[in-house]
Write a protein that binds this DNA or RNA. Structure first.
Length: 278
DNA sequence: ATTGGTTCCTGCTGGC
DNA sequence: TGCCAGCAGGAACCAA
């Protein structure tokens, strides 16, 4: 389940392996993922170098020589795999887009559930205007995100804080796992009305979000050599969650025998400690 | 306007 | 052992 830290780690892996490489060919094995691929995608990429890789929220941006930005989203099950010429395994069933670079190196975008996307815009202005981007809230690791800014965007909201943090307009890049982890770290109940997270609570939550994400990115960087696994797959790494997926286990931060609870909020699992989180 | 519910998709898991 | 229902989830979309 790639969220911001995983996407950041994948992006760094792509940058380390492919920055400046010329793309010879883009093979698309189907016309779409979650949405249709733009009709000019292959034509706009072929023969061009990728000058730079960047991340915005959960999107991977590939800045193309001469302008143009390819936008990839990993969705739920998206993976980026780099193969070496001569050692490349057979194409996988779900390798939907294959970027073939000079020298024969391939980048394969594999996505079993096809919740991912691959899009293209001509320039930065078009990127900002893109439907997926113009609603995006601040980057949680950027300067525009802090206690007061978070409090301001939560003010008056009547949804549970859990749902508010999943809303990419409030803060971008969080998913179900890191929202659970950040709320645990901040000691805030997922059921608390978002509008009541003001002042010191907002300060604590903003700091917790920053901390949880920073640690996860560091874990990814330290566990993967150049962010690439031996298999060529980018960016996924072992990580220990404090509460996510730990229903019934003892809360790691409580002295007593409180156990982690699982509830369902707007159709999604939330894990939390009812004693520690208020 | 805000908010909640539904949909897309396939691999994995648990129950019988 | 094999089958199948149910679950997982990001974001677009719809409806109240």
């Amino acid at each position: 389940m790639p969220e911001l830290p995983e996407v950041e780690t994948v992006t760094r892996g792509l940058a380390a392996a492919l920055t400046g490489k010329r793309l010879i060919k883009l093979e698309l094995t189907r016309p779409d993922l979650r949405r249709a691929f733009p009709p000019n995608l292959a034509a706009r990429l072929q023969g061009k170098r990728i000058e730079r890789f960047a991340r915005r929220a959960k999107y991977i941006l590939m800045h193309i020589e001469g302008g143009g930005i390819a936008i990839a989203h990993l969705g739920m099950s998206g993976r980026m795999i780099i193969t070496t010429p001569g050692e490349a395994p057979p194409r996988g069933k779900h390798d939907h887009a294959i970027f073939i670079f000079e020298g024969g190196v391939e980048l394969r975008f594999n996505d079993a559930r096809r919740f991912g996307s691959l899009d293209f815009v001509e320039d930065e202005a078009a990127l900002e205007a893109h439907p997926s981007f113009h609603h995006l809230g601040p980057e949680p690791l950027g300067n525009a995100f802090n206690g007061p800014s978070l409090a301001a965007s939560l003010k008056g909201k009547k949804t549970p804080i859990k749902a508010a943090l999943l809303d990419q307009r409030v803060v971008s890049g969080l998913g179900n796992i890191y929202v659970c982890e950040a709320l645990y770290s901040a000691g805030l109940s997922p059921n608390r009305l978002a509008g009541t997270v003001q002042g010191d609570r907002a300060e604590r939550l903003a700091a917790a979000i920053h901390d949880v994400l920073t640690r996860a990115i560091a874990a990814g960087g330290s566990s993967l050599r150049d962010y690439v696994q031996a298999s060529g797959e980018l960016g996924y790494f072992q990580h220990q969650w404090k509460v996510y997926g730990r229903e019934g286990e003892k809360c790691p931060g409580c002295d007593c025998s409180t156990v982690i609870k699982r509830i369902v909020q707007s159709g999604r699992s939330t894990f939390y400690c009812a004693k520690r989180q208020r």
